[in-house]
Design a protein around this nucleic acid. Structure first.
Lengths: 165, 165
DNA sequence: CGTTAATGTCAACAATACTGACATATTTTC
DNA sequence: GAAAATATGTCAGTATTGTTGACATTAACG
């Protein structure tokens, strides 16, 4: 390997170092999605389905608008995959109790099974990468990625995994 | 924030920690591509054009097959964007001297300008993320991402930025 | 000379994104 | 209570990017 930089090299980050970072993002993201993609193929689903399933699982009873905000796509685009998932019995859409215009999204038992199947292989890869890199590296990984996220999206992230989204 | 883990927490990575990592990859990649995407729109190009331009710039005189291997798409898919870029005078295709079946790809002056415009904004974001996170974090970032890449792709990465790809 | 390799191209198809328009039900506001 | 705004769903059309499969050309290899 030996593609790292000495600590003081941060004072002037070379173009080469930045381009390496860009390429690392490209190749890592490719690897990151490859395992779930194989499973999705069997279900005739795509990455969009995976993302919907992931965030419905993570944000209990999330509304359609909430999911739209997190995913950053149009409602027409989301509706296409949501319609399929609901039709296939993976996702349930419940009328809101407070606001009856809203639809609250839940995974069905079958949806939960698929979610587990997908998150298993993806988590496995992340876990292996974490383990191979070590705890300090994980800290750094998280720090850099957090700083790469658009500021607009940060509120969305913060609420994930904390009961309701 | 306070979404980190203590060092010994690595012994058992919780599902929550792994899911956070997965989401971080999703949101960071979104931010990572957002700035170039805005520029590409003006040129009526897409991300596929960006990737082609990036790796042609990085791998001097790369062949079509070489580019195919790096990008991991079909030749029909690559050819579509390559044809446009060549037609638009961004990329030049030169017949190989050793092997005349091969086509060696080069950026034209105009292509180099576009490449600079794209890599500028993307590098800026990476640089800012690096700076905000600090040198140690960058080391960790790189370590984790390298471990996330598919083993098949590693040979491709190694040769980038080292004269010829 | 026949086979293989590198490239290009045509056609068809699928997934995912977009815009714009419109409908319905419900809530909020004046 | 009527009007405006909000949440959702849907239809139609279009663009990008990926796929398969088929076929042609040119050049290299044995």
């Amino acid at each position: 390997m030996d593609r790292g930089q000495s600590n003081d090299a941060m004072l002037y980050l070379t173009d080469e170092q930045l381009l390496q970072g860009i390429e690392l993002m490209f190749f890592a993201y490719k690897g990151f999605t490859s395992d779930p993609d194989r499973i999705l193929e069997e279900y005739k689903y795509g990455r969009a389905h995976h993302r919907a399933i992931h965030f419905i699982n993570r944000s209990h009873a999330i509304t359609v608008n909430g999911l739209l905000t997190i995913l950053g796509v149009t409602k027409q685009s989301l509706n296409r995959v949501l319609r399929q998932l609901i039709h296939d019995g993976m996702v349930e859409s419940r009328v809101g109790t407070e606001d009856k215009r809203q639809r609250h999204l839940h995974l069905t038992n079958e949806g939960r099974l698929l979610e587990k199947e997908l998150s298993k292989v993806q988590s496995d890869r992340v876990r292996e990468a974490y383990k191979a890199a070590g705890p300090d590296a994980v800290q750094g990984f998280r720090k850099v990625l957090e700083n790469m996220v658009d500021h607009d999206m940060k509120p969305s992230i913060e609420t994930l995994g904390t009961e309701r989204g």
